[in-house]
Design a protein around this nucleic acid. Structure first.
Lengths: 250, 250
DNA sequence: CGCCGGTTTGAGAAACATCAACCTGTGTGG
DNA sequence: CCACACAGGTTGATGTTTCTCAAACCGGCG
């Protein structure tokens, strides 16, 4: 397997320094009104917004945190990596997603987290959160996010276990499209709309369990057959029905 | 792909009839003291114990349920299946596991559930559960189970995306061993102990994303190299360190 | 005994990985 | 401005893993 050369190996003290924003802009994280710095501060809950640039590491497997982390803007991912370089992205984190539900109970993370684009994220001490937020609301919120994560994982499991390369890519695109639709981040274009797609083919490969070369072949093939196109950080769907025939769970 | 011939296609009215046990025996489901028929009954919470024989279907994808389902004894699995027969098992359900955290919010199931051995399971109306159980305890319980499920899914995702056939099988065995260890269901034998292993190779294949033929080759190979052995419904580990070298996440 | 579900084995095909070259746009230093 | 490096993507030739299809095997059971 490839020894993926990433910047994981060169932590840069300056780059990794947390930058606390004093005025948190409007935040579409799932905590809803909860993710309002002023409101939380008034409630006596410590809340910090940090940010990372694209490709920077946010957490490493084994790191310890007492915080619940929520993505506020940008894309990130959870991944695991073997010592021989094989890497698998476990999930794509979009604004509103909880990075680690696991952190609710065990402070030590079982995966690494990396920014895919520039990312802003918030951290709340879990003890505080659990004490202060009214329990039923908190239950619904967290459980709902956990359940959504499980559903995503289920779909991904099926893809990796039982689908061919082109079907996997199609399914990935469709699921991303669904999630972005729900956030109103899909522009409707010719056939199936288009949306910002910051992933490099290497990263797509790490999601769908293929090599970057093979992803390139699949994407090129899809471009030629006018299924969809990825260019300039945007993904445009040209034939949504055909894509669904490939990648939908039926 | 194969058209897997399962008994999904021949529902048997007699076999599928729920059998409510009047005296629920000791139950190691995660609800702990909660899963005590008398206690729950006294608290006014409706609770039923049903059972299924091996290979029977408990739920089908798309079924609607207002209940939270917990496995009390036996093995079951969640799976999804394409119309062309491709099937992927999403998770193995052991006693104490919640079948569908999803049912907490959406009554319609996004997967099917099948008994792998004879299975006893309990159902509690979710509304009742959420109202009656004291919220903090409920939060911890459910979230903890959800988080554990996510961790399992993460490991499985890595295996399916980035591991070779023998590594996948080794990893599956190791993870099952861990879960059974926690339940005290591993007898320590010669090297790595042994435990009941009711899975057919077809089912193993549906977990690790391979064909049954290839699973047979891998298992036979492992038997010959004295890594482990599966026989008579029991799995015996002969060389735990070697197995871990193959399948552990490092 | 014959049947049946499950497993094993083999030969050939398909999907995907590997390795290597090349291409293109972009930034960088002289 | 040019030379150059570099990251990301594309393409091709070849190798490996796994699948497919088919047959044989094996223990249990009517």
């Amino acid at each position: 397997m490839l020894e993926y050369v990433t910047d994981l190996a060169r932590p840069n003290a300056l780059d990794e320094r947390p930058v606390t924003t004093l005025d948190a802009p409007a935040c579409r994280c799932g905590l809803g009104a909860g993710c309002d710095r002023r409101a939380l501060t008034q409630a006596g809950i410590a809340w910090t917004h940090d940010q990372r640039r694209a490709r920077q590491t946010i957490y490493r497997r084994g790191d310890v945190t007492e915080n619940i982390i929520v993505i506020c803007s940008g894309w990130a991912c959870r991944y695991n990596q073997l010592s021989d370089g094989r890497r698998q992205i476990l999930s794509i984190l979009l604004p509103g997603d909880i990075v680690a539900g696991a952190a609710l109970f065990s402070p030590v993370l079982d995966f690494s987290v990396q920014a895919l684009t520039a990312v802003r994220y918030g951290e709340i001490a879990r003890g505080q959160l659990r004490e202060r937020l009214s329990p039923p609301a908190f239950l619904d919120l967290v459980s709902q996010l956990l359940v959504a994560g499980q559903a995503e994982a289920d779909a991904q499991l099926f893809d990796l276990g039982r689908r061919l390369a082109d079907e996997r890519v199609a399914a990935l695109v469709l699921r991303l499209r669904e999630r972005l639709l729900a956030r109103g981040e899909v522009q409707d274009g010719a056939e199936g709309g288009s949306f910002a797609f910051p992933l490099r083919q290497q990263q797509v490969a790490d999601i769908v369990g293929l090599t970057p070369e093979h992803v390139s072949r699949v994407v090129t093939q899809m471009r030629r057959s006018r299924l969809m196109d990825i260019a300039d950080g945007f993904l445009t769907i040209h034939d949504l029905p055909a894509l669904k025939r490939l990648g939908d769970l039926r």
